[in-house]
């Protein structure tokens, strides 16, 4: 595999379903997704499309400001990205159609749709289950739904969080999502009504939140702010990945290891492992023990995913 250095990388994501093409064929949930591509956004103002199998860069888009967030649609035909508000440029959300025919190098330079969300700038976004609608998380703590074709704000929850929304990850069927925030909490929202379904309150700012498939847990990561880390002890920083029961809103366990705040958490689509990336410069890949799959700490209550 070719390794390519990515300067100022901010966000990358592989198209849905799985990380490797041959695994994908066994998953029937996304009959149309191919998982051939990876998209990355960076502080060098570029958005790049990659071939997952060989690590080759297929196409590069250039913008006036840094790319803060990228996401694939469920069928992996579309990509959404957020660019930073800076140097007179407004925060912009662009949706690109991905041409999957051939080797993927022939992409249209211009976005399919583009708009500037008004008010607080958007930090995170993802496609929802409804066609033509994306959900966004904002610096003010707002969570909103946008029609990306018209740029119209369909609905919002101004007080979803008390501080910057730092992450937003979708449930497998995209009918709900989890957000994390600097206000030390994470929340599950209905992506149709924007109702807050669950709240998980921790003792440190959160940078990432993920949903475990097949198990009723969510994974939260964060810790003391990077700037105040040097003045606090390791034990006080709380640089652990925290597992919470998503229905009972109770913490069920922690995984230690990082010695800096956790910036991002991603769960394996099959729920067999998870990875966390920290400010300490480490990516830690964790595989669950057998007991994780076998034990039912809350009895045999049936919980829908």
């Amino acid at each position: 595999m070719v390794t390519t250095e990515l300067f100022g990388l901010l966000m990358l994501t592989v198209s849905p379903a799985s990380f490797f093409p041959y695994v994908q064929k066994k998953i029937k949930r996304h009959p149309i997704a191919e998982s051939r591509f990876m998209i990355s956004g960076s502080a060098d103002n570029q958005l790049r499309l990659w071939n997952v199998a060989n690590g080759k860069c297929l196409y590069t888009w250039e913008f006036p400001t840094a790319v803060k967030r990228v996401a694939f649609s469920e069928d992996d035909k579309q990509v959404v990205c957020i660019t930073e508000q800076r140097m007179g440029h407004q925060c912009a959300i662009r949706v690109f159609n991905i041409n999957r025919s051939g080797d993927g190098t022939k992409q249209s330079k211009e976005p399919d749709h583009m708009f500037n969300p008004i008010g607080s700038k958007a930090n995170v976004c993802a496609f929802t289950a409804q066609p033509g609608v994306i959900v966004t998380g904002h610096e003010s703590g707002k969570v909103a739904l946008f029609n990306y074709k018209t740029g119209e704000e369909i609905d919002n929850n101004e007080r979803a969080h008390g501080d910057v929304v730092t992450d937003l990850q979708m449930s497998p069927d995209r009918t709900y999502c989890i957000t994390s925030s600097k206000d030390k909490s994470a929340r599950i929202h209905d992506t149709k009504t924007l109702d807050v379904i669950k709240t998980f309150t921790t003792e440190t700012p959160l940078n990432s939140a993920a949903i475990a498939p097949d198990k009723p847990y969510v994974l939260l990561g964060g810790g003391q702010e990077a700037m105040s880390v040097t003045t606090t002890s390791l034990r006080q920083g709380k640089f652990e990945t925290r597992f919470w029961h998503k229905v009972f809103e109770e913490e069920v366990g922690r995984v230690k290891g990082h010695f800096g705040p956790i910036n991002t958490i991603a769960v394996h689509p099959k729920g067999i492992s998870y990875s966390s990336g920290g400010e300490d410069g480490f990516v830690r890949v964790h595989h669950y023990d057998d007991s994780y799959f076998k034990t039912e700490p809350y009895g045999d209550l049936q919980i829908d995913t």
């Binding site: 069927d173 009918t175 209905d190 379904i197 049936q302 829908d304």
Partner: peptide, 14 residues
């Protein structure tokens, strides 16, 4: 009760 509420909501959105 929490599980029932959750499952009801899931069923509805599904």
């Amino acid at each position: 009760r929490l599980v029932d509420e959750w499952n009801a909501w899931r069923a509805r959105s599904k």
